[in-house]
Design a protein around this nucleic acid. Structure first.
Lengths: 228, 228
DNA sequence: TCATACAGAACGATCGTTCTGCTTGTAAAG
DNA sequence: CTTTACAAGCAGAACGATCGTTCTGTATGA
């Protein structure tokens, strides 16, 4: 793995039984929360519903996550990993289709998935919830930074401007997430697909996939001379 | 006005006193709802809050809008007019700046405004609220259709393909709305501005503003021969 | 031995809706 | 032009349901 992005933490064998139980319980609850966010939306994702979906007692839930906010924050951490991480166009089967293929692939993880939709629910909710925003805002900005840096490992701008490369990918992520908001206007799935394809066509001339070896060289060069 | 898009209904002088009162009361409530959606988000926009913001009694509110859903639907109607209508790049002061200027202008109405944010709250909420979705979905699709048709009055695709023109503008609207979701990742306002500018630069070569006269001719021609 | 893991009852607060009663503008009847 | 009947506008109390949190009590692995 060439990037330094967080991954989903796994239970290690050296954990005690209790630790592993706790770990599993928390994972179950986060998973259930994610499902509820996707199915019911933020306002209808109540503790009761999560408890029911996770099939745990109220006491267990409260024990692991004393407040609802704690649960949401934990779920966000999980969602950032499962939606932003795959937004890197790493080596894939259909990677030879170029940017269009990449965009379709990324859209599937970033917006057209349970995780993507759940993340949007939290993103929208945090805008007006100051407490929640204060807690998750730093994490989001960290991720934005990391994704920006990691993207330069896979693509390069035809212009050679690395800053522009990051900007372009930020634009594309915004577009892909905006698709979730566009869906009510054009529920036809093919229309969404067409939009993604067209977006890829338009941006394709601006980008060029970077080979692994080339990456290392260019990275060093860019670091030394930070000209536009 | 060359397009056929709905406008905000005005109280006409031939209305009776009661009708005008009712009209004003409804407008006040819709306005308050919009403000609450922007400030507090969908889940914290309660009847109590709206009532307080509008400074009306609970009885008055319930009289005009028996259920909360009625209030939301009415607010959506209002928001579609005030956010989607200005998403037409009609004649403006800075229209000579080309697409970049247009995009900045549209962003101000579509996403970077109280109305834009309130609309997003409803768009996100309706995804998981079947009752609400059933009521507002037809309206949204109507608007999408109308906007698509109206856009051809102001721009034309360099390719000459009218279908592509509509597609491109749909992409740009998705991008602009996606900016609301991008904001938590990059709270720096200048970064958002930069993204809009770059988006405009990239799409500028694809579009060409259409003069009024030219519009009429082309419109007729396109109607007769619907070839790509 | 004791902190951790869990179970479940109970809390007050707030949600959206329903209901009863009072006021008032309006249109028809006289 | 008055008078009268009545629906529409409005005020506010009360409803049951559900919200998120707190609390007490029990079981168990370290």
């Amino acid at each position: 793995m060439s990037d330094k992005l967080p991954t989903i933490p796994n239970a290690t064998p050296d954990m005690t039984l209790k630790e592993r139980q706790s770990f599993a319980a928390r994972a179950t609850l986060v998973e259930a929360t994610m499902g509820c966010l996707d199915r019911f939306g933020y306002s209808d994702t109540s503790i009761n519903r999560i408890q029911e979906a996770a099939n745990v007692s109220r006491g267990a839930l409260t024990h692991h996550f004393p407040t609802k906010e704690d649960l949401i924050v934990a779920t966000l951490d999980r969602l950032l990993i499962t939606t932003l991480r795959p937004s890197l166009p790493s080596k894939r089967a259909d990677s030879d289709k170029g940017l269009v293929g990449d965009l379709h692939y990324i859209a599937r993880g970033l917006s057209r998935s349970r995780e993507g939709r759940a993340l949007v629910e939290i993103l929208v909710a945090m805008r007006t919830d100051k407490n929640l925003r204060d807690r998750v805002s730093p994490r989001l900005q960290e991720w934005d930074q990391m994704i920006g840096e990691a993207i330069t490992g896979y693509y390069e701008a035809v212009s050679g401007n690395e800053e522009d490369l990051v900007l372009i990918w930020t634009i594309m992520r915004s577009f892909l997430r905006g698709l979730i908001l566009q869906e009510p206007f054009s529920p036809d799935e093919r229309k969404i697909e067409t939009m993604i394809t067209r977006m890829g066509e338009i941006f394709n001339p601006l980008l060029r996939p970077r080979s692994k070896l080339e990456h290392l060289e260019t990275y060093q060069r860019d670091k030394n001379a930070k000209s536009l």
